[in-house]
């Protein structure tokens, strides 16, 4: 179980302090798939980095299984928006990297790496260099590298944001299957609401200025889920409505209050004569 207690984060820059997070309380059960959505700048990545131990809280604490998190560690693997694979290593060595650091024997490393490469259907490319793969393949290698660590918690920071929609939907299906098979705790940060609802058991909507948790939605739909499913679309719409308010607020603050989102105005084309010449 993962627990954030009153977590706050203040970034100090040359232009003063920014309150990135304020009083975030969040509990993630073991084996849960949780999505964090919110407008840009609401601190969802910061929450993830704090859980990963890559950033420290300014106030509040983070606990994993009752023990406080103080630094990064291989029990909480992060998958970043970019693949961040090491270009000097072959695909297979990249997947083995974490296990090598952990000091696993060569044979076991290779077996496990091949197992997880098989999960993302890339065994054929095991001895390729990173630059020889496409963007989607690279992200799949990154996924299998993260999975190969066999950590109980997987933190994903918009891992599919840079991919084209076809590749992304393939990876969505793969990720659902892998999650069902491994039952890891997954925290998935995204700005794509459909993606969040499609994948998660629970979607947490965050608000900005300062970053905080606004609302939670349970997604009780059977898996594997399809994006066209009516129940799914309904939840997506609910969340979208909630988010629209937030996005508007952020935009207004960025444009010095001189910005409004036009609502439900009729879009009329000026050369339409509405049948006047009958």
């Amino acid at each position: 179980m993962l627990k954030l207690k009153g977590a706050g984060k203040i970034f100090s820059t040359q232009n003063g302090n920014t309150k990135a997070l304020e009083n975030v309380n969040l509990t993630v059960a073991r084996g849960e798939f949780l999505s964090l959505v919110g407008p840009s700048g609401c601190g969802k990545t910061t929450v993830l980095n704090i859980i990963a131990g890559l950033e420290k809280t300014s106030s509040g604490k983070v606990y994993k299984e009752g023990r406080e998190i103080t630094g990064a560690g291989p029990d909480r693997i992060v998958m970043f928006q970019e693949p961040a694979l090491f270009p000097w290593l072959k695909v297979i060595d990249n997947v083995e990297y974490g296990m090598k650091v952990a000091g696993l024997p060569k044979k076991e490393r290779l077996e496990r790496a091949m197992h997880y490469l098989k999960m993302v259907h890339l065994t054929r490319f095991a001895h390729y260099f990173i630059h020889e793969l496409s963007g989607g393949m690279r992200q799949r290698v990154a996924l299998s590298r993260a999975l190969a660590m066999d950590s109980d918690i997987l933190l994903m920071d918009e891992p599919f944001a840079a991919l084209d929609s076809q590749t992304r939907s393939i990876l969505h299906t793969e990720l659902q299957q892998i999650w069902c098979a491994t039952k890891k705790t997954v925290i998935f940060v995204t700005h794509n609401v459909e993606e969040a609802v499609l994948l998660a058991d629970r979607v947490v909507v965050m608000a900005a200025n300062p970053g905080r948790i606004k609302k939670e939605y349970r997604v009780r739909l059977a898996r594997p889920r399809e994006p066209e499913h009516a129940g799914l679309v309904r939840i997506v719409n609910q969340i979208m409505k909630e988010l629209k308010e937030e996005v508007e607020k952020v935009a207004r603050s960025e444009y010095d209050s001189g910005w409004t989102l036009q609502k439900s105005t009729f879009l009329l084309s000026p050369d339409s004569n509405v049948g006047g010449n009958i």
Partner: peptide
């Protein structure tokens, strides 16, 4: 060296000298 490589190394459990030899120098 791109900081992202170091973050990956840290979450993978490599720190100190190990991170240096396995990530920083090759990068």
């Amino acid at each position: 060296v791109p900081p992202i490589y170091l973050r990956v190394a840290r979450t993978m459990g490599a720190r100190g000298l190990k991170a240096y030899t396995s990530v920083v120098i090759p990068a």
